[in-house]
Computed example of a mutant assay.
Amino acid sequence: MNGKAKFFDPGDERGILRISIAVTLVMSSLGIGFGLISGSFSITFDGVYSLVDASMSLLSLVVVNLITSFTLAKGLSRKLRERFSMGFWHLEPMVLGLNGTLLIGVAVYALVNAVSSLLEGGRDLEFGWAIIYAVFTLIACTTTAIVEARANRKLGSEFIRLDVKSWVMSAGITAALLIAFCIGFGVQGTTWQWISPYIDPAVLAVVCLLIIPLPVSTVRQALADIFLVTPADLKAHVDVVAQAFVKKHGLVSHRAYVARVGRSKEIELFFIVPADAPARRIDEWDALRDEIGDAIGGEGPDRWLTVVFTGDPEWAE
């Protein structure tokens, strides 16, 4: 029991991702199965969408394991550590960008198919089966999203944040499907029955239009991390701290190079020391490094800080 509880630990980033993968695989199987039984392309899309999300969650779990193993200095082979001596933080924005791009691609493809179906006169489906699926899926998606969102208040994981967004998107899709299926079931045997073939593709088109923009911000941030775009807020903070340090210790100037790659903060600081500055012992230089590190803050396994003192400005350029 303890092993299982640890494997699906809701207080751990990897445990949350494992829970998400397990639930997603179940929902994906149900979605594809119910979609084939009911004849609903929107339900089939929901299942395929979940399957793509599960594969990305699995990839995210692999990356989290690599990052955690590297930062904690355990569970990682010496050969792998030597080949990736700078860590695995760079994989995080790659996975996030790929995840968001795939979700957008799947939604665009479904939108094209929905429009094509509308132009061809729609499709008939079994609304009873569709309603049963929608109710069950809506409960599962909402519950999972709430559990993950509460857990991520402490964890602060970008992977989980994107996963929560994905579950909210899935819940929104399912809620729209449920409303549409109930309307379709209600018009059976009435003068409005002619609209029932259009309900499935129409609601799918609307849902796709709503969810396509949602992962865009994640993809944009991932690209910024991949291309090492300097985060303005972090750069400003480092400059303020470094300028105060220069003034306090009578240094000439400083150069700061800052990047945010996934969860990591990579900071390189070069301080230009006066040519006539008195000599210092190694432990004194280390004490200065500790001082600037404490002033910058955020010390932890995901902060990569390099502090260099030099009398030659060319070394800092």
Rank of each mutant, 00 (worst) to 15 (best):
A224Y: 10
V241D: 03
T137P: 15
N99M: 12
Q188E: 14
S117F: 01
S217A: 08
I195Q: 14
T143F: 15
C182N: 09
V52T: 13
D9M: 07
G156E: 02
A134K: 02
P10A: 09
I43H: 09
A287P: 13
V112A: 03
V64W: 03
F34C: 01
L58I: 06
T310V: 10
A140N: 06
R83F: 08
G47M: 00
D302S: 15
V307A: 04
S42N: 02
S170T: 11
E284P: 06
L305G: 05
A244T: 12
D200M: 07
A224L: 15
Q193M: 09
K235R: 10
A171D: 03
L91P: 08
D200W: 10
A202P: 14
L223E: 01
V307D: 04
L76S: 11
I199S: 05
I292G: 07
I67K: 03
A107N: 04
V229F: 04
A222L: 05
S42F: 05
A180H: 08
A130F: 01
N99S: 04
A180E: 15
A114Q: 13
G297D: 07
C141D: 07
L66T: 03
I146S: 09
W129L: 11
S117A: 15
E291H: 00
A202F: 10
F270P: 13
P93G: 00
L36A: 13
V187K: 00
Y109A: 14
R161P: 06
T218W: 13
C208Y: 03
I32C: 06
I195E: 04
L30A: 07
E82K: 09
M169E: 05
K6M: 13
G87S: 05
M94V: 13
I211A: 02
V252W: 08
L25T: 12
G250I: 05
L59P: 11
L61W: 01
V258E: 12
E268N: 15
G184I: 02
V108H: 11
E266T: 11
T68V: 08
A295V: 02
K248T: 08
S253E: 10
A134M: 04
P301K: 06
D53E: 13
I272H: 01
G3T: 09
I179L: 08
L111M: 07
G262M: 01
A176G: 13
V112F: 14
L98Y: 10
C182R: 09
L223I: 14
A242N: 00
D124A: 05
W89E: 15
A224C: 12
P197K: 01
L288M: 05
T230A: 06
D46V: 02
L66R: 10
P274H: 02
V108F: 09
D163L: 10
F41G: 14
L209V: 08
A236N: 04
A151Q: 00
I146P: 06
A232W: 08
I282A: 11
H90E: 12
G250Q: 01
L58A: 09
D233G: 10
T306A: 06
V63H: 02
A202S: 05
L59F: 08
F7E: 03
A130V: 00
G75C: 11
Q188Y: 06
G262T: 10
N152D: 10
V164H: 02
G35Y: 00
D290L: 13
L51W: 11
T310N: 03
V115Y: 04
A287L: 08
G39E: 00
P10M: 02
N113Y: 04
P231H: 06
L162E: 04
